[in-house]
Structure formats: structure tokens, C-alpha cells
């Protein structure tokens, strides 16, 4: 029994706790005020009718029924977001890996290529989107002009409901710089001896990739996929700007522009939240949609917490 030591130990404990609390305090306050409160309030407002002018009134499940059953844009928005999550993420990871392989293999001018491939990632999303809408403008854009000069019949890109999302994917591939750097770093980490050993065994290029490169970069690929999914669920700016500009509709003061041109093909869930909450002031319905988005995000996040995604390790 070390009774005499106990008060001192306790004091030390308390001090340590206070210290920890002190260091964590910015985040604790931030988490409570800027995350906890609004999340609960979102749940609260999802059961209220509130036009941000008159006092909120309780309406039970009306907002939920409205969003899930009556609102025609809910389906397209959900579909587009899922489409982008699947296609955009898959292509970005594949393309990023390809570019990563390419820059690690190129012998001359590697510095130039790296910079060239990386720069577009730095272009602010709004600027990059504005540029792409112009470049891919079917009537006057240089891309279609060039394509028709060589006799290729070009699509209408952002102006065609079937091509609008692929055009957004193209835009996202242009900004592949972040993934390129990650893949490049991990590819350079693969021990050279393993390649040499594989070569001795007479492995071809494909076999080398399959049996040497791939196993060592799998965690990075996983990481790229999961963070890609999370980013794409928030996909907002590019889709909104592309739709707005490509529609050619002047934002005459007064006119409410429904996002998603053409034909809701670029309407994502976050855009719909904005449109409901800040254009229609349908607070309740916007909050319902927010919670749907929250549920999906949490489902993905729980995947992330698994070991393979690499965000948390066993000793955490």
C-alpha cells in the first residue's frame, strides 16, 4: 500500500488531464460549436417547417416524405453523386497510377513532365472549370474546332446530358497532380532488388507489375480510393460552375437558376442542399437531404476506419 504517494499521483494525474484538455481545447470547442450543434440542429430542423422568416413549426415527417417521395430532383441528384463516386474515382485512381508509372519511367526531361502533370492540380477549381467550359464549348471552343478540322465529329461536352458528367471526369483527370505525386512516391519506394529478382525469374513487364509493384502499392491505392470517394461526395463547385456557364442562361437578377444543366445531369446532392436551403428557403427539406448525405458519408467513413485504409493503425 503506497498510500502516501496517492495524493501526489492524483495531482499529477489531474495536471496531466488539464494539460491534455488545454491542448485539445480549440478542437473541443470547435467540434462542439461548429459540428455538434449544427448536426443536432439539422436533425431538429428536418422535422420543422421553417422558411427562415416565420417561426419554425413542427410538421412531423412531412419534410422526409417530401424529399424521399415527392421531390423529383432527389433521384437524379443521388444518381449523379453515386455515378461520379464510382466512375470519377475509379478513373482518377487508374489514371493517377498510370501517370505515376509514366513519370517514374521517363528518363529525359522528367522534371518538365512532373511539373506539367502537376500544374493543373493547382488551378483553382472555379478557374479550371471556367476554362474547360470555354475549351469544350461546342460552338466556339478550340477543342471542337480542332477536332472538326481533322474530321472527327466531336460531342457537345458540357451541353449534352450524356456527356456532361464525362466532361467533368475529364476535368478531374486534368487535375490529377495530387494522386500522381502520391503514386510516384510510393512507386519509387518499391525496392529495386525485387524487380531485379523478378527479372532473373524471367518476368515480363506485366508480371513485374502484377507481382512486385502492385502488392507494395495496394495500401496507397486503397487510400486514394477512399479519400477520392469522400471528396467526390462533396462534389459541388465544378459541377455547379460548369452547369451554370454551359447553360448560357444569364443570371438575370431575379431568375432562380436550377442547378444541374443539362437536364439535371450535373446536379449533385450538395448542390441540391444549397438550392433547397438557400434558394427555396425550404430549410426542413434541405436538412433532410443533409442527413441523407451524412448517412452516406458516415457509411464510407466507417470503411475508412478499417485498418487497410491506413488512416488508423493498431497502436492508435
Amino acid at each position: 500500500m503506497a498510500i502516501p504517494l496517492a495524493p501526489e499521483l492524483r495531482r499529477k494525474r489531474t495536471r496531466e488531464r488539464l494539460r491534455t484538455l488545454g491542448f485539445l481545447s480549440p478542437w473541443l470547442v470547435g467540434f462542439t460549436v461548429f459540428f455538434g450543434y449544427p448536426l443536432l440542429a439539422t436533425v431538429y430542423f428536418s422535422f420543422m417547417h421553417y422558411n427562415q422568416i416565420q417561426s419554425p413549426t413542427f410538421v412531423g415527417l412531412r419534410n422526409w416524405r417530401y424529399v424521399l417521395e415527392q421531390m423529383p430532383l432527389f433521384g437524379p441528384a443521388l444518381w449523379n453523386t453515386l455515378w461520379l463516386v464510382v466512375v470519377m474515382v475509379a478513373l482518377r485512381v487508374a489514371f493517377g497510377l498510370g501517370i505515376g508509372l509514366l513519370v517514374t519511367k521517363v528518363k529525359t526531361g522528367a522534371g518538365f513532365f512532373r511539373t506539367a502533370f502537376y500544374l493543373p492540380y493547382l488551378a483553382p477549381p472555379v478557374a479550371a472549370t471556367v476554362a474547360f467550359v470555354f475549351l469544350l464549348n461546342p460552338g466556339t471552343g478550340p477543342v471542337n474546332e480542332a477536332l472538326s478540322a481533322v474530321g472527327v465529329s466531336a460531342p457537345n461536352w458540357f451541353n449534352d446530358p450524356d456527356w456532361a458528367k464525362p466532361s467533368l471526369v475529364l476535368l478531374s483527370l486534368w487535375g490529377i497532380g495530387d494522386l500522381m505525386v502520391i503514386f510516384m512516391a510510393s512507386l519509387l519506394d518499391v525496392p529495386k532488388e525485387q524487380y531485379e529478382a523478378a527479372e532473373l525469374d524471367g518476368a515480363g513487364a506485366f508480371a513485374k507489375f502484377r507481382y512486385v509493384t502492385w502488392p507494395s502499392i495496394v495500401p496507397i491505392v486503397m487510400f486514394a480510393v477512399v479519400t477520392g470517394v469522400v471528396q467526390t461526395m462533396q462534389y459541388y463547385t465544378q459541377a455547379l460552375v460548369a452547369g451554370k456557364l454551359a447553360s448560357g442562361v444569364s443570371i438575370g437578377p431575379g431568375t432562380v437558376i436550377q442547378p444541374g444543366y443539362p437536364d439535371h445531369s450535373t446536379l449533385t446532392v450538395p448542390q441540391l442542399v444549397y438550392s433547397l436551403g438557400f434558394q427555396n428557403f425550404n430549410t426542413g427539406a434541405a436538412c433532410v437531404l443533409s442527413l441523407v448525405l451524412f448517412a452516406i458519408a458516415m457509411a464510407v467513413t466507417s470503411l475508412l476506419m478499417r485498418k487497410r485504409a491506413g488512416l488508423l493503425t493498431a497502436e492508435d
Binding site: 460549436v33 455538434g36 450543434y37 440542429a41 417561426s55
Partner: peptide, 19 residues
């Protein structure tokens, strides 16, 4: 850690007055 989260309920009830 979740206690502050629950405290938010209070904030919420007092937090929706009109402009």
C-alpha cells in the same frame, strides 16, 4: 467527450429566434 455534444441541445433550443 460526448457530453459537450449533448450540451448542444440547450444551445439549440435557445438558438432559433427570428431576425
Amino acid at each position: 467527450l460526448l457530453v459537450p455534444l449533448l450540451l448542444c441541445a440547450g444551445l439549440l433550443l435557445s438558438g432559433c429566434a427570428n431576425p
